[in-house]
Design a binder for these strands. Sequence first.
DNA 1: GGCACTTAATGTTGACGTGACTTTAAGGTA
DNA 2: TACCTTAAAGTCACGTCAACATTAAGTGCC
Lengths: 237, 237
Amino acid sequence: MTTSSIDQRVSLAVSTVIFALRPHPDTGLMTLWLPLVRRIREPYEGMWALPGGPLEADEDLAASAQHTLERTTGLAPNYLEQLYAFGNVDRSHSDTVGYRSSDRVVSIVYWALVRQDEVARAVDGENVEWFVADDLPPLAFDHAQIVDYALARLRAKITYTPIAHAFLPTEFTLADLRAVHEAVLRTTLDPANFRRQALATKTLVPTGTCLQGTSHRPPALFRFEAGAPTPAPEEQR
Amino acid sequence: MTTSSIDQRVSLAVSTVIFALRPHPDTGLMTLWLPLVRRIREPYEGMWALPGGPLEADEDLAASAQHTLERTTGLAPNYLEQLYAFGNVDRSHSDTVGYRSSDRVVSIVYWALVRQDEVARAVDGENVEWFVADDLPPLAFDHAQIVDYALARLRAKITYTPIAHAFLPTEFTLADLRAVHEAVLRTTLDPANFRRQALATKTLVPTGTCLQGTSHRPPALFRFEAGAPTPAPEEQR
DNA sequence: GGCACTTAATGTTGACGTGACTTTAAGGTA
DNA sequence: TACCTTAAAGTCACGTCAACATTAAGTGCC
């Protein structure tokens, strides 16, 4: 039915959408950011793209994502999950740009969350820059759609799974946790109701201590319940 | 950090977990079945495996899944969605069997649903056989885990998304729809409550007609609301 | 010290969804 | 006509949740 054309080969890449929280320069509000890498060769030379690279023959998929991440941005993610495998034939030149790559690329895309303090360690190198997730420049390939999908996934998953802690240090207040939700979902949440829901999940363990040094009633500190951070199905059992 | 060993290459395959409903031979109850293909070469020769094949260079991922499906089982799925990309290095010889394949295989796995009347068209060839999804023989590679994951996904998704209709013809009664849910989830559901929930989704359109020839009150017929059957993210927008 | 101010934490109330169950409707069959 | 079966609609108690109110516990200012 389908005869493979000789001048085209399928190669496999692993890319990652990495989310982090930082204050917005204008508003000062906590906002979702992600690091992008500037392409230094055709196609799409000079444009911004997701960090990624070819899959090495002796690397697991998730390991490949982590290695490229470490190599390009210096980041160690606190949460990593497979997003989707993008592999349509036309995706290299989907933006109607005249570029023609001889190789067809199938990208297995992961999405990752990093802690706020980890962001500080990030290498802001020559060709790596952070952008506001909801206000990105034009991206290479189909990476804009991929980011959209990752954003939708993050926003959906944070509402029914305790992944917000992946943005936070080991000890945090309920206000911290709520701030993460509000930043990700871009809404305000009722503190009282948020508390009730958060405590109902049973994934929060009170440390017994309170945060001191506030100019008001000191909030209780919590820790996230130990437990596997959503293992990939290949690692299950 | 990682030097690719010379004797190993990464190749890409697309496989599919196909679900269909048939009465169980013993109990007569509606049950989940899936077709498997007998392997005719090493590794795992003679064992049962998911239908699949190498990705052709000019084929989209979903198209590849559909083509292999058509080729091996003769089936045309009514629903097709990407499940996961399995690509760990050790997955070819994960069962401690002595087989050694020189190539490493990354499988992009889809899951599919076929209508009951479509199952009749299925080719029950020499090397294709249907099995009860929850009572499978030992499978080749890591396919048993893949099926488990697909089963979990199907059971989770049918509870919050209207995909049950993919098993049914265009017109059906609420009892038919409920029977699908009961077969997939292996439970009994309260008819009255199921009706309320089903109608609340607004995805069911009454045809106005009733099913005749029953030895009791004739049930109303419904049609599924037109609408894209969960497009893959690459096809969105 | 007393008061204003801020956030933490707890309580209250009404709307809504859901599971278990009951009642009525509409056919066929003995 | 009595009876059986399933369809379809209705009832009720319970739990969840958004919205709002109240109390608790600190700081800073006069």
